[in-house]
């Protein structure tokens, strides 16, 4: 396998590492040097006076407590705008679970020598929406936001903080292990089918400006992009423009004929639903949806 030096993959790994370092160094600086510039993790991150609140967590808090709080709304603005423009890039470029998944992928590649894992367990992609709905529904019944204390991206931050501050690990960290373990059965199993945060960001990014587009004249129907997609989407069949794509750029990297590319769209054309394009049906889709 080769990673082109200026590929999206390499850049994404850089961004993921920096994003992970941020939530690793924040607690370290707080605990050992009393520097409280950075606090929190990807549920709410504070860098000085710049605050970020994850849209789903903020929404849950508002729905359950039925109270609006202006700083929270303002802090939710930046992530929402990011998702509006770029889609759910948080998931693929920032989320610490993605960071660990990439590490796991790298290790697996070193051990097995196979570049891509075959997805063994496939479910309906619509599960993602039911996960979001169910999560909001149960949160409101229970009167406590469910996702905020079992969200894997948040749990990573909480475990790091608990480790540094109290030299112990919280019990709920097994959820992270479960999520990562399922990656060995199906790539990004949790992200694909169950992550309510991913679903929220996908919905916000339904009219995103940046999509992976395809030049059909250049496509040689090699099917590499379909195999490379960590979400099991089929960019060759136009699914990269669907709601589910998280703009990681793996397919763009792998495309040998430069048929796939990131595109900044001017109009606010709605992103297509996940319907495969009939025109390129001969490129065998890796799985059914």
């Amino acid at each position: 396998m080769e990673i082109r030096p200026r590929s999206f993959h390499a850049r994404r790994l850089w961004v993921l590492s920096i994003a992970f370092l941020l939530i690793l160094l924040g607690p370290l600086a707080n605990y050992y040097f009393q520097i409280d510039l950075i606090q929190g993790w990807y549920q709410s991150l504070g860098i000085g006076n710049f605050w970020f609140v994850s849209p789903l967590e903020g929404l849950e808090s508002i729905l359950v407590a039925k109270q609006l709080y202006l700083p929270a709304l303002i802090a939710m603005l930046a992530p929402v705008v990011l998702a509006l423009l770029l889609g759910s890039v948080f998931c693929s470029w920032i989320c610490p679970i993605s960071f660990f998944s990439e590490l796991l992928d790298w290790t697996r590649r070193k051990i097995s020598g196979r570049r891509w894992l075959k997805d063994r367990l496939l479910l309906s992609r619509r599960l993602l929406w039911y996960a979001l709905l169910g999560e909001l529904f149960f949160s409101m019944i229970l009167g406590a936001p469910l996702f905020v204390f079992v969200s894997p991206p948040g749990l990573v931050g909480r475990e790091i903080m608990t480790l540094i501050f109290f030299h112990t690990l919280a019990l709920e960290g097994v959820i992270i292990l479960l999520v990562l373990g399922m990656n060995l059965v199906t790539r990004r199993f949790y992200c694909r089918y169950f992550c309510p945060l991913g679903a929220t960001l996908n919905l916000i990014g339904s009219r995103r400006r940046v999509t992976v587009s395809m030049d059909h004249d250049r496509c040689i129907a090699c099917g590499l992009c379909d195999r490379s997609c960590p979400l099991g989407l089929s960019p060759a069949n136009g699914m990269a423009e669907s709601l589910y794509c998280w703009n990681c750029g793996e397919c763009v990297d792998v495309c040998q004929s430069d048929a796939l590319f990131f595109q900044w769209r001017q109009g606010s054309k709605k992103v297509q639903k996940g319907k495969p394009n009939q025109r390129l049906k001969q490129t065998a889709a890796p799985d059914e949806h």
Binding site: G40, E57, V64, G143, P145, V148, G154, M161, F165
Partner: peptide, 16 residues
């Protein structure tokens, strides 16, 4: 009554 609903468990108060 509403603490569990309002708190998003970001842990920033602990860190600070």
């Amino acid at each position: 009554e509403i603490f569990a609903g309002k708190c998003i468990r970001c842990g920033r108060c602990v860190e600070v």
